[in-house]
Structures are given as C-alpha cells and as structure tokens.
Amino acid sequence: MRSEPEPITITGVNGRATAYEDHVNISRKSFGGLLFQGFKGEKEIFYSDLKGIEYKKPNLMLNGYIQFITNAELAKNQAVGWVGTTLDAAEDPNAIILRAFKKSNVRMYEKFHRYVMLKLQAAKQSKVQNINLSNASYSTADELQKLATLRDQGIISNEEFQQQKQKLLNQ
C-alpha cells in the first residue's frame, strides 16, 4: 500500500499555502489573510490547471512571493519589497507574500517551491502523454477506417487489408 507524502505548508503575510500530491490549497485563515483578502474560503488549485508558478525568494531586505498562475491574462504583477509590497500583490487570490525573518522559513519556502515545480512538471508531462496517446489512437483508428473503405470499394483485397491492419496495430 502506497502512502501519500506529507503535505508541505508555508505561511506568508497574506495567508498559507499547502502543497498536496495533486493540488495546492490556499487558505486565508490568518490575520494577514483576513486583512488583505477578507472572509474568503480556501482555494484549491490543481497542478494540471496551472499555466505556471512564479517565485521570488525573500531575503532579509525584501519580501518574496509565490504565485500560482492559472490564467496569464488575469495574473497580477507582484511588486514586493521590504515596505513596498503593493496592495495588488497582497490581494492576489493566487499568491502568498513571503517574508524571511528566519532562515528556516526560507528553507521551507525553497522546499515548497521545488516540490510544486516538480508536481507542475509532472502534470504537464502527463497532459502531453495523454494528447500523444489520444492522437496515436485516433490516427490508427483513422487509418484503419481508410483501409476498410479501400477494401469495401474493391481497391485493395481483403488480404492486403489484413496485412496493413496488422502493421498498424503492431506500431
């Protein structure tokens, strides 16, 4: 029996993000989350729905952020700084503003970022494989249909049809 890996949680200025095997959960159940986001519920974003992840590592002088991009046109520009974090950045429903008060926080942010990037990459590869499988099965079925039409029209013999069919199915 395969067990699920432990989720990874990071806490930022405007909420908390937890990375699971197939999705990220964004929660605003914190003072900063309430202040910047209001009484919003939790949000789940599946890796397969992501267009990308933008990450800026925080340091002692500047805030950082992690932003989950589901639609490039709707993504807000993340202008973050020590005191210059914009309200737009803090109000982005798909972003968590990160502070580096402790080195352990930064290490956790880095671990979280690596994990979600691996999951995003795996989701994108899975999509490509599914498209390739779909195209391959469609083109094989399409070719078989064409061969059957040629056979039915008497252009090729049943023996030729069977030979070509076997070739296609063996590919």
Rank of each mutant, 00 (worst) to 15 (best):
K43A: 12
L35F: 13
K43C: 03
F36G: 02
D49W: 01
E54R: 12
S48L: 10
I8N: 07
T18G: 07
P58K: 04
G32A: 02
G64L: 05
T18I: 10
T11N: 12
P7F: 08
I53H: 11
D22A: 07
V24Y: 03
Y65R: 07
V13L: 14
T9W: 01
I66A: 10
Y20E: 11
N25P: 00
G64C: 04
I8E: 11
L60N: 09
K40D: 07
F46T: 06
H23R: 15
S27N: 09
K57E: 15
I69E: 10
G15P: 06
G41M: 05
G15C: 05
T9K: 14
G38W: 04
E42N: 15
A17S: 09
G15I: 09
S27Y: 01
R28E: 02
K29I: 11
T18R: 08
N71A: 11
K56C: 04
F39S: 10
P58A: 09
G52M: 04
A72M: 10
Q67C: 08
R28V: 07
E21S: 14
K43L: 14
D22H: 12
I10C: 05
R16P: 02
M61S: 12
K56T: 12
S30Y: 11
I8Y: 00
T18N: 05
S30W: 08
G38D: 09
H23G: 02
P58V: 08
I69M: 08
F46C: 01
G64Q: 09
L35M: 14
M61Y: 09
G38S: 06
K29P: 01
D49M: 02
K57C: 14
T70C: 10
P58W: 10
G33S: 04
K57Y: 00
L60M: 14
A17R: 01
P7A: 09
F36D: 02
T9D: 07
M61L: 13
N14Q: 02
Q37L: 00
S48P: 03
G52F: 03
Q67M: 05
S30H: 06
K40P: 05
G38L: 03
Y65V: 05
Y47S: 01
A72Y: 02
R16Q: 13
L62D: 15
L60E: 13
N59T: 05
I8K: 14
K51N: 15
K43R: 14
E54I: 06
S30K: 04
N59K: 01
G32Y: 00
N14M: 05
K56D: 01
A72T: 14
K56R: 13
L50G: 01
T11E: 11
G41N: 11
E54C: 09
E42K: 14
I26Q: 04
I69K: 04
I69R: 03
N71G: 06
P7G: 08
Q67V: 05
S27L: 01
E21N: 09
G32D: 00
D22G: 09
E42G: 11
Y47G: 02
K29R: 12
Q37G: 04
F31Q: 13
N59P: 06
I10H: 08
G41W: 01
N71I: 04
H23Y: 15
P7S: 07
L62G: 01
N59I: 06
S27C: 07
N71E: 15
N63K: 14
Y47H: 05
T9F: 00
T11Q: 12
N25L: 15
L34T: 11
P7C: 05
L60Y: 13
F68R: 11
A19C: 08
E21L: 13
L35D: 00
Y55A: 10
Q67E: 15
E42Q: 14
I10R: 05
D22N: 13
